[in-house]
């Protein structure tokens, strides 16, 4: 989102404008909202891991194959990846600008989509095809 290099002078000048006001507000709200939902994710994750850590595939199919557990876990995992991408954006914005920021942001997006895709596909495999 950011091309302009932000120097201490830009920050010190109260009349300067930098960053995208609308997108930044949206990122802020998204991060708070997804963060709150992630508390539910951690609760479900704790349940799933306590049930299934070190267990065989059949046990994982039995627990995650219950659509009331598998489908919410998949949905919450997607929200987690949104939170991950947004949080990493905050970090990247602080240390990079211009082309390198755009490149790293793209890698960030690819990683988060990959996590979401593989996670959801794996869970849905267990839920719908055993």
């Amino acid at each position: 989102m950011r091309e302009q290099v932000i120097t201490p002078q830009v920050i010190a000048n109260p009349k300067s404008k930098y960053g995208n006001a609308k997108a930044s507000t949206r990122h802020f709200i998204t991060q708070r909202l997804s963060g709150a939902i992630n508390i539910a994710f951690l609760g479900l994750l704790l349940f799933v891991v306590v049930q299934l850590a070190g267990q065989d595939r059949a046990d994982m199919v039995a627990t995650l194959g219950n659509a009331w557990i598998g489908v919410p876990l998949a949905l919450l995992l997607v929200i987690v990846t949104v939170h991950m991408r947004n949080g990493m954006r905050d970090t990247l914005e602080d240390y990079f600008a211009g082309r390198s920021y755009q490149l790293l942001m793209m890698l960030n997006t690819v990683f988060c989509i990959l996590i979401a895709l593989v996670g959801v596909a794996s869970i849905f495999k267990l839920v719908f095809w055993g």
């Binding site: 995650l64 995992l77 949080g87 596909a121």
Partner: peptide
């Protein structure tokens, strides 16, 4: 910890993918 969780999500997905793949990867 946010960055650690970012990387750690791969551990969770790896476990899920192995379970979906089969007993041997799991």
């Amino acid at each position: 910890t946010g960055i650690a969780n970012y990387a750690g999500s791969a551990l969770l997905v790896l476990w899920l993918a192995a379970a979906a793949w089969g007993q041997e990867p799991l």
